[in-house]
Amino acid sequence: MIKVTWGQILRWRIERQFLGATRGADAVAVARRLGGLHAQLAASAVTALDLRVTGGATAESVDEELWGKRRLVKTWAARGTLHLLPADDLPTWVAAMSTRSRESTASWLRYQGVTAEQMADVIAAVPDVLGGEPMTRQELADAIIKATRHDDLREPLTQGFGMLLKPLAFRGLLCFGPPRGRNVTFVAPRQWLDSWDDVDSDAAIDTLTLAYLGTYGPATPEEFSRWFDLKPALAKKAFARLGDQLVAVEGGSMPAALVGEVAQERPVSVLLLPAFDPYTVASMRQADRVVTGDNRAKVSRPQGWISPALVVDGRIDGVWDEGTVTPFVPLARSIRSALVRGFPGVSVAD
């Protein structure tokens, strides 16, 4: 086992996530390194990119990557939540996500108000009704109902959280298209994107495991399983297959090729991260080591809300909202000064 401190690990994570001295070359490079950008809140995804991309990012530049250049794709991915992924990586993500089978369980079907036959008919119909031309949620629902003759599917197909659409995304049958006014649209990725090469599921899981450990490591198979929403047995098999490429570090495993970076000296970093920032989201699996004090509930709140966070040297030392930072511990004068310099207009609550 390699001996490193958690302070070293957290500072290494900051650097690996383009929050330290190095920025990502572009939005695609950042999305790839982070395992996707959480996009439940579009503004948070833009802010997360702006912090990490050379030259910054705007809502307009992100839209251009999504709908103009089509180098990013918006879909349901890790943990079944909305993410922006590199378009070139989508076949790999789909190969790994297609191992999910929750939609075939009786409890899931009952909760969604559909039968196994109806769900199977929806999955079979979508490749015939959805192509490269964007369709609104209502248009897609109409087309599926016409194809399946299941008139009672309208409500589950059009509900805002898209629960019936997520299994389609996991199979690579749909992703988001450009919005039409205030309406979201969907397209078939294999027709929307320039190319698509199918990937073996084990190879895909191994690729995503290495990428995850190279950004959020060290971690255990169970932690990777929870972060991705992968069956625990499949995560354990991936770690076993990758054994000679990994090294044991306190708290889990990480890629052997990157271990030498962990102990490098790095300057103090003081960051204000947006809601749902990938750094904060991934940190919740090890909150006892990353969040200062007994404050996890202030960071990971009810209904899956992840608060904007004050991060000092990789440790979550507070939360912030509307320009006011609420620290979990008294802040050193140097940290307060760094906040004032780096984030003009921000105040610190007493």
Rank of each mutant, 00 (worst) to 15 (best):
A203M: 12
F176D: 13
A211F: 09
G162D: 00
G177R: 09
V184G: 12
F170C: 12
L173T: 02
D200E: 14
L208F: 00
L164M: 12
V199S: 09
V199Y: 00
V187C: 00
W196V: 10
A204H: 07
F176Y: 05
L165M: 09
L164A: 11
L208G: 08
N183F: 13
M163H: 14
W192F: 07
I205A: 12
P178A: 13
D200S: 14
D202N: 14
L213T: 00
D202T: 13
A188R: 00
P189T: 01
R182N: 14
W192R: 02
L213K: 02
L208V: 03
D200I: 12
K166Q: 12
R171V: 03
R182A: 07
T209M: 05
T209F: 01
A204V: 03
G172P: 04
V199E: 07
A203S: 08
M163K: 11
S195M: 10
Q191L: 06
I205L: 15
W196Q: 09
K166G: 06
P179G: 09
D202W: 12
F170H: 04
F176S: 13
D194T: 10
T185P: 05
V199Q: 11
D197C: 14
L164F: 01
G181E: 10
R190K: 06
V187K: 01
L193E: 05
G181W: 15
F186C: 02
P167F: 05
R180T: 14
D202K: 15
G181L: 13
G177T: 01
D206G: 08
L173K: 03
L213Q: 04
D194P: 08
W196L: 12
N183T: 13
M163S: 14
D197P: 04
R171W: 04
W192V: 01
P178K: 13
P167M: 10
D194I: 07
G181K: 11
L213E: 00
I205S: 12
L164D: 05
R190S: 04
L165D: 04
S201R: 10
S201G: 07
A203L: 11
D200W: 11
P167V: 09
L174R: 02
A204P: 05
M163W: 13
D197H: 14
V187G: 00
P178G: 10
P178D: 08
L208A: 09
L173H: 00
G162W: 06
G162E: 05
R171E: 09
G177W: 03
L208Y: 04
Y212C: 08
G181M: 10
R182Q: 15
W196Y: 11
R190L: 04
V184E: 11
T207E: 14
D202P: 07
L174Y: 00
D194F: 14
K166F: 11
F170G: 03
S195Y: 03
F170D: 10
A188K: 00
L173G: 00
L210C: 06
T207A: 14
